[in-house]
Deep mutational scan, measured.
Amino acid sequence: AVSDRLIGRKGVVMEAISPQNSALVKVDGETWRATSGTVLDVGEEVSVKAIEGVKLVVEKLE
């Protein structure tokens, strides 16, 4: 799938994300809905860990 190429890519949080709420991230110039197990604020850099349906699963870039 096209989205599989995004695993391992870096992105930027466009809307705050919490474990209860998905929000938008920008990866390679494209906007995607994403979820995370932690709270992520706007502007934080993230890494794509997986794809669940049409959502990216991201975590904060260390």
Rank of each mutant, 00 (worst) to 15 (best):
K60P: 09
V46P: 02
V12R: 07
E15T: 10
I17M: 14
L6T: 02
R9E: 04
S47I: 15
R33K: 10
V27M: 03
T35D: 07
T38N: 09
V25R: 02
S36L: 05
G11S: 01
L56R: 00
S18F: 09
E45M: 13
L61W: 12
A23P: 07
K49N: 05
T35C: 14
K26Y: 13
K49Y: 07
A50P: 00
K26W: 14
E30M: 10
W32N: 00
E44D: 15
V57W: 08
G11K: 00
M14I: 14
Q20H: 12
L61I: 12
T38R: 07
D41Q: 14
G8K: 03
G11C: 06
T31Q: 08
A23Y: 15
L61D: 06
S36M: 05
L24S: 06
A34F: 07
L40H: 03
G11Q: 02
G53V: 03
V13F: 02
E52F: 10
V42L: 06
E45H: 11
A34M: 03
E59V: 11
R9D: 02
V2G: 10
L40Y: 04
R33Q: 14
Q20L: 11
T31L: 15
V25N: 00
Q20E: 11
A50E: 05
V42K: 07
S22F: 13
V48S: 01
S47R: 15
K55R: 13
G29H: 05
S18I: 07
V39A: 12
S22I: 12
Q20S: 12
G43I: 00
V48W: 02
D28G: 07
G37T: 14
M14F: 06
V13A: 03
A16I: 15
V27Q: 02
E62S: 12
K60T: 06
S22P: 09
K10V: 13
A23D: 02
L56V: 05
L61S: 08
L40G: 01
T31D: 06
G8N: 05
T35N: 06
V46W: 03
E45N: 07
L24W: 13
L56K: 01
E52V: 12
V48M: 01
R9V: 05
K60G: 05
G29I: 01
G53Y: 03
W32C: 01
V12N: 02
G43L: 04
A50Y: 07
V39L: 11
V12H: 06
E30A: 07
G43P: 01
Q20K: 10
S3E: 07
R5K: 09
E30I: 10
P19Y: 11
T31S: 09
I7C: 07
V39H: 13
L40V: 06
V54F: 14
S36Q: 02
V54A: 13
L6V: 05
L56P: 00
V42C: 06
T38S: 12
V42Y: 05
I7K: 04
M14D: 02
G43K: 02
E52I: 13
G11M: 02
N21V: 09
V57C: 06
M14T: 08
V54Q: 14
I17L: 13
L6Y: 06
G37H: 13
V39Y: 14
K26A: 09
L40K: 00
E30Y: 10
S36W: 06
V13C: 05
V46S: 01
G37F: 14
R33M: 15
V58D: 00
S47G: 05
T35M: 10
I17F: 13
T35Y: 10
S36C: 14
D28E: 07
D41G: 11
A50T: 06
V54I: 11
G11L: 01
G53E: 03
E44K: 04
V58R: 00
T35G: 05
G29T: 04
D4Y: 07
G8D: 03
L61Q: 06
E30D: 07
A16L: 14
